[in-house]
């Protein structure tokens, strides 16, 4: 075992971890914001609105992320002149931009589909009750449907977050120095393949389970009103005893 290579390069590795987290958070944040309108459009009764979104979600869920990444990063080169003409080439030239764009488009598709399922799972009675109270349109969505849908969709979204976090390792293929990219460079320099891969794997493992732990906490918090009060069972027993 040659652990020196890890200690000597800890700063380089830390930069890799930071880039991994940065890309993950950026794509997740933008993806979540875009997923809400995407899910609503997907549920629209107007086929002119729902069909394009359906096609988009189907395409991004049905093809490998690596192909999407190459399609955007290398594929944009085929339209270099057109992109230069509208001033977008400077963005598509950057691997960082292409990585975030691809991951965002990918996670938006998955998140929108999760959200669609969650919105459809909102009980009719709750919507009817809200309508009876005079809520409609945006207010109904903001106060009743979306909060409930977020809560229902959270376990599935946790999986998506972990998958996206792990999927960021693909950006090392388009030359970005995320944790995997840094590990690859260190291995080519030092040949300490096992030590570095196992170290990188352990970091991914630790962050993955931290994310799961964090989302379990959020789930616990958001479902507080659905649980028994602390001591509720004891109180119920006491009440039953007192009634006798």
């Amino acid at each position: 075992m040659n652990l020196e290579v890890i200690f000597d390069n800890w700063r380089f590795l830390a930069e890799g971890v930071i880039l991994t987290l940065e890309i993950t958070l950026l794509s997740l944040a933008i993806g979540l914001v875009l997923a809400v309108p995407a899910a609503l459009m997907r549920l629209s009764r107007n086929p002119l609105v729902s069909m394009p979104i359906y096609a988009y979600i189907f395409y991004f869920r049905g093809t490998p992320l690596l192909v999407q990444l190459f399609l955007i990063y290398y594929g944009s080169g085929q339209f270099r002149e057109q992109l230069e003409a509208i001033g977008l080439w400077q963005f598509f030239r950057e691997p960082y931009f292409c990585a975030v764009l691809t991951l965002t488009l990918n996670t938006t598709a998955y998140t929108a589909e999760i959200l669609r399922g969650a919105i459809q799972a909102v009980p009719h009675g709750e919507v009817e009750a809200a309508r009876a109270c005079g809520m409609s349109g945006a207010l109904l969505y903001r106060r009743i449907i979306l909060p409930k849908a977020f809560r229902v969709g959270l376990p599935a979204y946790t999986n998506e977050v972990v998958f996206l976090f792990q999927a960021t390792s693909l950006v090392s293929i388009i030359s970005l120095l995320d944790l995997t990219g840094v590990a690859r460079i260190l291995i080519s320099r030092s040949f300490a393949a096992y030590e570095i891969w196992i170290f990188a794997g352990a970091i991914y493992l630790a962050i993955s389970y931290s994310l799961i732990f964090f989302f379990r906490k959020v789930e616990h918090r958001w479902s507080g009103h659905l649980r028994d009060r602390p001591g509720a069972q004891a109180a119920a027993v006491e009440e039953a005893v007192a009634l006798r």
Binding site: Q166, S169, S172, T180, W197, I198, S208
Partner: peptide, 19 residues
């Protein structure tokens, strides 16, 4: 199951292939 599900596929692929 814990290890395999917590580590990216790409890392595992390279690790297994060379390892």
């Amino acid at each position: 199951t814990t290890v395999v599900r917590g580590v990216p596929e790409l890392v595992l692929i390279i690790l297994v292939y060379y390892g």
